[in-house]
């Protein structure tokens, strides 16, 4: 059968177009494309070659071994040097030309240590307005091995949100130690040695049981009848009781 003229002409045009595309493709596809997957393998190398700005605390320790040792033994042992001193690869490359900044004003430390209720309780927090106003933090605290100047008497140093909520509640006048026994070691290893919590209903009953001798305005309940399965604080939040 004779091929129609139209088909022949169109065939030539299409064949030429496809051939041109294939030729162009063989020239234009990047060399390393497809080596590792559907991408340019060389891209990994160029990304890996990006210069680093943060040297890493190991680099700092190579020269500043004294400070590194001090830091490693103190409460900032997990805080890398460049958290406060900023990215210092430039200083590593040219130790004499580039000097790392050291934030000495009161603006920097509160980034971590200003009171903020969203922070986990137990994290040391202060109120920057009330806490020794105008004095730079480093007059009292050594940033490389910070400790409170005296072991804190006030639980609020680390439990700010609880202290604030309690201050607004009917329990405002109760000191923490009324309900919690705090071992001295809690201040040294706070996560290992924990304060106690009231272990029996009768403890709260000293104020809240019927006929208790506490303040008259404290609500009273029948300890025997009122949900005897639970300790009081399993339902009520004593730092901020429901009735205010």
């Amino acid at each position: 059968m004779k091929v129609p003229q139209q088909v022949a002409r169109l065939g030539v045009v299409f064949a030429a177009a496809i051939a041109a595309l294939l030729v162009a493709r063989s020239f234009l596809v990047p060399e390393t494309f497809g080596e590792l997957g559907h991408y340019r393998a060389a891209a990994i190398d160029s990304i890996a070659a990006h210069p680093k700005k943060y040297a890493g605390h190991q680099e700092c320790a190579a020269c500043h071994d004294d400070l590194a040792a001090k830091r490693a033994a103190g409460n900032h042992r997990g805080v890398a040097c460049e958290v406060c001193h900023g990215p210092q690869q430039a200083h590593v490359d040219a130790p004499l030309d580039v000097k790392p900044p050291a934030p000495r004003d009161r603006g920097f430390c509160p980034l971590c240590h200003a009171y903020n209720p969203s922070r986990p309780t137990g994290f040391p927090q202060i109120d920057p307005v009330a806490h020794n106003p105008l004095r730079p933090c480093i007059t009292c605290h050594d940033p490389h091995a910070p400790v409170p100047p005296a072991v804190p008497e006030e639980c609020s140093a680390c439990h700010g949100q609880i202290a604030r909520q309690k201050a607004l509640s009917h329990h405002a006048n109760l000191p923490c130690v009324t309900c919690h026994q705090v071992p001295q070691q809690h201040k040294v290893t706070p996560r290992v040695i924990r304060p106690t919590k009231p272990a029996e209903r009768a403890f709260c009953g000293r104020c809240h049981a019927e006929g208790a001798s506490g303040p008259a305005e404290a609500p009273r309940i029948d300890l025997a009848a009122h949900h005897p399965r639970y300790l009081c604080w399993q339902c009520h939040y004593p730092h901020y009781p429901e009735t205010q």
Partner: peptide, 15 residues
């Protein structure tokens, strides 16, 4: 027309 100028009857039918 790409040079396909055949206007014969079968050709037009093919179109």
């Amino acid at each position: 027309t790409l040079g396909a100028t055949d206007l014969s009857d079968p050709s037009l039918k093919f179109d």
